[in-house]
Computed example of a mutant assay.
Amino acid sequence: MKFLFDENISYRILKKISTLAPQSLHVSRIGLTQPASDLDIWNFAKKKGFVLVSFDEDFQDLSHLNGFPPKVVLLRVGNSSTQNIAEILFSKWSDVEQFYQSETFGLLEIF
């Protein structure tokens, strides 16, 4: 599984989750014009097989409009540190894996 982390999450998350998802990338490092539009990020994730991870509810809207792929993990944990986000992902990893394997669901909200 590989994540594409939105710009509202620090690129430092990559190091913290590298044991779980070593092929993950951050939006700032994929060659899109910065700031990248949500649609450009969506299309990149779809084309390259990433799961989008964001706080941005616009990706929820895109998921409802377009379906999946890409799948979207929407973090609903408020303003959180990079360390806290990593800990949340680790603690919810079994849910994330089930979501990733699901052929039914394209959006996972983590509270």
Rank of each mutant, 00 (worst) to 15 (best):
L4A: 09
L4Q: 06
D6L: 09
N8I: 02
N8R: 02
N8Q: 10
R12L: 15
K15A: 14
I17P: 00
T19C: 08
L20G: 06
L20V: 05
A21M: 13
L25R: 14
V27K: 09
R29H: 13
I30R: 08
T33D: 14
Q34C: 07
Q34T: 10
P35M: 03
P35T: 04
A36R: 08
I41M: 03
W42R: 01
W42V: 02
W42L: 03
N43K: 08
N43P: 00
K48T: 07
G49Q: 09
L52D: 09
V53N: 09
S54F: 01
F55G: 02
E57Q: 11
F59S: 08
Q60H: 08
S63G: 01
H64V: 11
P69Y: 11
P69G: 05
K71N: 10
K71L: 13
R76T: 02
V77Y: 02
G78H: 06
G78R: 05
S80G: 07
T82K: 00
T82L: 02
N84P: 00
N84G: 00
E87P: 02
F90Y: 15
F90S: 10
S91W: 10
W93V: 03
S94F: 02
D95A: 12
E97H: 02
E97N: 02
G106M: 13
L108M: 10
E109C: 09
